[in-house]
Simulated scan of single mutants.
Amino acid sequence: MGKHEERFSKRERLCSKKLIDTLFGPGRSHAMTAFPLKVVYRLVDNVTETTASAGAVTETNVQVLISVPKKHFKRAVKRNRVKRQVREAYRKHKSYVTLRVKELTDKQLLIAFIWLSNELTDSVTVDQRVYNLLQRIGERI
C-alpha cells in the first residue's frame, strides 16, 4: 500500500448533515463497542458530490466522523488529543474497510467513532481498539 493511500483527506470526513442524519436516524445502523470506543456504521447507496471549483465528480467509499463528548472531557485540549489519536489509528488501518467496500458497487460506508471513557488512553490502546473495530466491520459488511 502506497503512502498516498494512507492519507486521511477532507473527502473522507463525514461532514454532511444529511448523511449524519442518515447514519443516526431510524434504519439499518449497526453499533459495536471496544472500550473506550463505540462505533456506529451504516452501508448506504453511494452519494456522489460535485465540487464547485473543478466540476469533477468525487466518490468516497468510506466517510468517518469522530466524536468526543464534552461531557467526558471539559478541556478542548484533551478532546482534541483523543480525536487526533483516533484519526491516526483510522488512517493506518482504514484499508480493512475501504478494500471491502470497493468490492461492493454503488455502496458507501458511513462510520462514527464515539469516545465512551472519562479518562485519556495511550495511543497503542486506541490503535488496537480501532483496528479491532475496523476488522469486525469489514467482516460484517
Score class of each variant (00 low, 15 high):
44 V>Y: 06
84 R>C: 11
55 G>H: 04
14 L>C: 09
62 V>S: 06
96 Y>V: 12
46 N>C: 14
65 L>P: 03
112 A>L: 07
102 K>D: 09
5 E>A: 12
121 T>F: 10
94 K>R: 14
39 V>Q: 02
133 L>Y: 06
28 R>N: 12
126 V>T: 15
109 L>E: 07
97 V>M: 09
40 V>Q: 08
71 K>Q: 05
64 V>M: 03
102 K>F: 10
138 G>E: 11
61 N>K: 15
4 H>L: 07
139 E>S: 10
13 R>W: 00
94 K>I: 13
105 T>A: 14
129 R>K: 15
62 V>W: 03
93 H>G: 10
71 K>G: 06
20 I>F: 05
78 K>Y: 01
122 D>L: 09
103 E>L: 07
102 K>S: 13
24 F>S: 00
40 V>G: 03
114 I>C: 02
134 L>G: 03
113 F>S: 01
122 D>I: 11
68 V>A: 01
48 T>G: 03
10 K>Q: 01
116 L>W: 02
50 T>R: 14
13 R>K: 12
70 K>V: 03
49 E>Y: 12
123 S>N: 09
50 T>A: 08
127 D>R: 11
118 N>G: 14
108 Q>K: 15
80 N>Q: 13
43 L>I: 08
89 A>V: 11
86 V>H: 06
32 M>V: 04
88 E>I: 04
37 L>R: 04
123 S>E: 07
126 V>K: 04
51 T>G: 13
97 V>I: 13
135 Q>W: 04
136 R>E: 11
49 E>P: 00
53 S>V: 09
5 E>Y: 05
14 L>A: 07
85 Q>G: 04
136 R>S: 12
58 T>G: 01
136 R>Q: 14
127 D>V: 07
42 R>H: 00
15 C>A: 10
88 E>D: 11
32 M>C: 05
94 K>Y: 12
139 E>W: 08
40 V>R: 08
32 M>E: 06
42 R>W: 02
44 V>Q: 08
28 R>C: 10
122 D>E: 15
23 L>G: 09
19 L>C: 01
125 T>M: 12
122 D>W: 13
3 K>V: 03
108 Q>M: 15
35 F>N: 11
86 V>S: 06
49 E>A: 08
3 K>M: 02
64 V>P: 05
53 S>I: 02
127 D>K: 09
11 R>Q: 10
90 Y>S: 04
89 A>D: 04
80 N>C: 05
100 R>C: 08
27 G>C: 05
23 L>H: 03
